[in-house]
Design a protein around this nucleic acid. Structure first.
Lengths: 332, 332
DNA sequence: CGCAACAATGTAATCCTTTACATCCATATT
DNA sequence: AATATGGATGTAAAGGATTACATTGTTGCG
């Protein structure tokens, strides 16, 4: 592997000039620039990134951690993040934490060891070993939270208004005439799940349906929702609001297995608007999140911090949208 | 940020000793080890990875590129890769190339610049700028191909026997009595698509159905398959083999929109066995690929190369499996 | 014609860690 | 008691790029 020294020797210039040709072309005369570039090409020289990082204190890499990479929702967020990162000259390191705090910590260490310049974490838990950094550097710490958001951890974040979204979903079911409504939430530790539930409860109260609301706890997986279905059917539920499309699909599958039909017997509304939601049968009514934009903006926020930007915008709320397809229908 | 020098000074030892405490604890006396570790803790010292990489020529990072990260199939492969990487002491950098050769090249450069130690690429195209490296280093080049596989590019790879799988799928439809069978392939440039098609055609020939086989080209996306459905219906097809579950779902959705039913009128078989396949309605009959294992083994192969292992196993074929659910049915 | 100003390039320090080699000291061996 | 052995630690040289500062050479102006 050629080094800058060999390039310099072969081009008959100093290493400084070679470096300048590559990073500040305008500070070098055209003739030498061309000559150097020719040597660079012929040798196939590529600067050693470790050496550069060591010298410049910049790894040009951003870490994005997700609790579950096989969740299509996160895949879309990552894609947005990756795009924004590439535009800003950063590569993305993806960490799949599998909801495991020790793996989260492991990845967070990459920040402390300067393997990456910043972190976007898509989950609700701020890794413990980042606490000191956050409390020391405050909003200038290169850490951004995506999707979820916890006001208490003091980290900028990008998300939708989950309470409003929860409210919208429930309102939609009520508007269709449903009175006995079931809700399958995410885990209680998830702030966005709590927000959605709060929104849903508030809407239910507004219509005097608080007492008839059947709330069950899921974990965003299809299985977890399917498991609650027979119980909810027994309770006479006609409308069901699941906090993820996967759970909605699981629930619909279970409804069918119970010999009932969605939407004829039970209307189901999901959350996220996964790419497959429209191809599911029945087409899934759902709350669409701007997945790509969430990732995109989270990275932009982070890059801003890394550039020492003063912005200090700490919370970005993006719009959600109720997408009505055929898994919900007026009662009767 | 503390450096090793400060730790050394504060612990009253040389930097060499600190380094040894962290990387070769057994070569240091217990008393000094404890003393150093105490200082490391109190200062929150984390070795600078760039400096270490520069010195050791090891980035401890593996690059995995995918043509489309929002494809759940790849997400599962990545997860397997990530797991194997972490076990071997590597982090995974994920690159989403969006089928764009220039982005592929961009990521491949990370190998040349030693930002990463190795590359697993999940696609069929070997980035151009890797050619020289491959032809120079041959099988010792730290590059592995996952899922797809091109015998000509001379890179070790991990995949299933796609021809056999294509054959299995078609045999299944024939066994159910279907005679007019449609196939929606992937792009022609994709070797795995060609293999599956070859397998399917071979099976059709065996049953004297070659001429009745209706072949259409898709791009693995739901939309692309949906677009072919009305035409295939017009051709009187009763069985449809799609080269991805997403296409199968798109096709089923289109079949329904055309007023027909799957599986009553048309049986559909997919490929991949995505996590959602069993929750789809009807439950998707499909060829299951060992997604996680593919990623896992690809990384293991790569790590083996990185460790200078002599293995030189160049092609690993993993087993696939026909999973029968309810989207296929005997003709009737 | 002489000097200021500036453009182009070179010199060498620096980023932080790892590790080959040197040194020291204590224990074991004869 | 003298020496060999080996364990613990220190010294200092990489590793490859960037960049402040120094130097050289040109151009322009009075």
């Amino acid at each position: 592997m050629p080094t800058i020294i060999q390039v310099a020797a072969m081009a008959g210039v100093s290493t400084a000039t070679v470096s300048r040709v590559l990073s500040h072309p305008d500070r070098v005369s055209e003739t030498t620039r061309l000559r150097v570039l020719e040597v660079v090409d012929s040798l196939g020289y590529k600067p050693n990134v470790a050496a550069r990082t060591l010298r410049t204190l910049r790894a040009a890499k951003i870490l994005v951690t997700v609790p579950d990479i096989s969740n299509p929702f996160f895949a879309s967020v990552i894609r947005g993040a990756e795009e924004a990162a590439r535009d800003a000259g950063y590569a993305v390191v993806v960490g799949d934490t599998r909801h495991d705090p020790s793996i989260e910590d492991q990845y967070a260490d990459m920040l402390s060891s300067r393997e990456v310049d910043g972190l976007v974490f898509l989950g609700h838990r701020l890794p413990d070993n980042l606490r000191p950094m956050i409390s020391k550097q405050g909003a200038r710490a290169p850490v951004v939270n995506g999707c979820e958001y916890s006001p208490d951890i003091g980290v900028p974040s990008v998300h939708i208004d989950n309470a409003a979204a929860g409210c919208d979903a429930l309102e939609h079911l009520v508007r269709l005439g449903h009175r006995d409504i079931g809700v399958v939430t995410g885990p209680h530790v998830s702030p966005i799940s709590r927000d959605r539930l709060a929104g849903a409860i508030q809407a239910a109260e507004r219509h005097g349906l608080r007492d008839r609301l059947q709330v069950r706890v899921g974990d965003y997986s299809a299985q977890s929702a399917a498991g609650h279905v027979s119980d909810l059917i027994a309770q006479g539920v006609t409308g069901l609001f699941c906090f993820s499309d996967e759970m909605a699909m699981g629930a619909i599958s279970a409804i069918r297995q119970a010999g009932l039909s969605c939407p004829d017997d039970i209307s189901v509304i999901g959350f996220d608007d996964l790419p497959l939601a429209r191809f599911f049968q029945p087409g899934l009514t759902t709350i669409a999140q701007p997945k790509g934009r969430i990732g995109h903006q989270a990275v932009e926020l982070l890059v801003n911090i890394l550039r020492g930007g003063e912005s200090l915008v700490s919370q970005i709320t993006l719009p959600h949208e109720l997408v009505i397809r055929s898994s919900t229908r007026a009662i009767g």
